[in-house]
Design a protein around this nucleic acid. Structure first.
Lengths: 204, 204
DNA sequence: TTTTCACAAGACAGCTTGTCTTAAACGAGA
DNA sequence: TCTCGTTTAAGACAAGCTGTCTTGTGAAAA
C-alpha cells in the first residue's frame, strides 16, 4: 500500500497544544508543591491527558523534566539579561546583568530549585537542558571577563580566567538561592550583595 | 510474671556495630555510584543485614539518609576548621578556615552532593542534619564577621551583617562545588579563588 | 470515503517503600 | 544449665511507581 503525504496544520497545532498543557501542568505542580515528589500519573491527570500520551511525546519521565527545564530556560525572562549585555560599558553589563538574572531566578525560584537538584542527582533527568544553560553562561562570562579586561576594568592581580570563574560562580542560580532562600534576603538585597561582591573581587 | 532487668553491654555493642555497618554501606554506595538511585534493599544487602533491620533502626528511608548526613557532618574532618578558628588573627582564621573546609568538602564531595541535593528536593530526608550543619555555619560566620570588625579588618563600606552573608555564601558547599566540579578546578585553586574573592569583597 | 494521525484506556512486569508477623540467635540473669 | 527478653533475619503483603505494549476511537487530511 502506498503511503499518503500529510500536511498537518490543525492536527499539529492540537498536538503542540497538548504538549504545552503537559509542560504547564508540571510547572504548576512544581510551583504549588515543590517539595513533593511528582509522578507521571499526577501530571497526566492534571493535564487531562492519558499517562501513555506523556510517554509518547517525551519518551520517559526524564525526557519530560528535561523538556520542562529546556522550556523554562529557553523561554521568557531573559530580555533583561540581553539588554544588559548590549550595554557597551562592561561594568554596566555586569551590574545590570546580575540584577536581571536575580529577578529571573526569583520569578521561577521553586521550579529552578527542583530542576537543578534533580539534575545534580541524576544526570539523565534534565541534564541536557541544565548543561546547555550552564554552557551558555560559561561562554557569556568568558566574553564578559574579556570585555572587562579590554576596557581596563580588571584588578591587575586578577587574570581573565580567574575573573571568568568568579563571574560564573556569582551569576549561578545557586549563589542567588543561597542568599535568597538560605539567608532570607530580598531580591534587591541579593543583587546588591552579589554586585558588590563581584566588583570588589575582580574590578579595580 | 516479673520483668528481669537487663544491662546490654555486649548486645548493645553488637547493635552499634550493625548501625555502623549500615551507615558505611550507604556511604560506600554513594561514593561508588553517586548518580544512581539507592534503594534500601541494596543497602541492606551490602551491609549483610535484613531490610527490616534498617527500618527497625532508622525508622524510614529518610531517617537512614538523615543519619548518614549527621554521621558525615558530625564526624571527622573538621579539625582543620577548628584549628583555624582558634587562630587569634581573624584574617588568618578566614584564610585557613576556607582552605580547611575546601579540603573537607573535596574529600567527601560526591556524598555531600547527593545528600545536599536530596535535602533540597525533600526537606524530610536529611533535612535535620543539613539544617543543623547550616545553622552551625551561620553562627560561625556571624562570629567571624564580628571578629573581623573588632580587629578593624572590614572594609568601611561593608556592614557586619553583609560580611556574614558573604562569608556564609563563600564557605558553603555549593560555592566550593560550583568551582570544583562546575569549573574543573583543583582544591588548591578553588581555595585560592574563594579566599581572594572574600578578602577583596569584605576586607580592607 | 478512506487513510492516517493523535490520543485514551488499560493491562502488565518489575521495581520501590513501609508495615507486619513469625521465628531464630544469643547474652544476661536465676 | 536453663530460661527469659532483646536483637535480628526472613519474608509476606499492600500500595505506589515507571516503562512497555496493545487495542480502540474520533477527527483531520487526502
Amino acid at each position: 500500500m502506498a503511503t499518503r503525504k500529510y500536511e498537518q496544520r490543525l492536527r499539529a497545532d492540537a498536538a503542540e497544544e497538548t504538549r504545552r498543557r503537559i509542560l504547564d501542568a508540571v510547572y504548576e505542580r512544581l510551583r504549588k508543591a515543590p517539595t513533593q515528589a511528582v509522578s507521571v500519573d499526577q501530571v497526566a491527570r492534571a493535564a487531562r491527558v492519558a499517562r501513555s500520551t506523556i510517554y509518547l511525546i517525551f519518551g520517559s519521565r526524564a525526557g519530560l523534566f528535561d523538556a520542562v527545564a529546556a522550556d523554562l530556560m529557553e523561554r521568557g525572562g531573559f530580555e533583561g539579561v540581553r539588554t544588559a549585555v548590549a550595554n557597551p560599558d562592561a561594568r554596566e553589563t555586569l551590574r545590570e546583568g546580575i540584577r536581571a538574572s536575580c529577578e529571573y531566578f526569583a520569578a521561577h525560584r521553586d521550579v529552578h530549585r527542583v530542576l537543578f537538584s534533580m539534575a545534580a542527582l541524576d544526570p539523565e533527568a534534565t541534564a541536557g537542558a541544565v548543561q546547555r544553560s550552564d554552557a551558555r553562561r560559561t561562554g557569556g562570562m568568558a566574553h564578559l571577563a574579556q570585555r572587562l579586561a579590554d576596557q581596563g576594568l580588571l584588578r591587575p592581580d586578577v587574570t581573565v580566567d580567574d575573573a571568568a570563574h568568579i563571574l560564573w560562580l556569582t551569576t549561578s542560580f545557586d549563589a542567588f538561592d543561597l542568599l535568597y532562600t538560605g539567608r532570607g534576603l530580598s531580591v534587591d538585597e541579593v543583587a546588591r550583595l552579589l554586585v558588590a561582591n563581584v566588583e570588589h573581587a575582580i574590578c579595580r
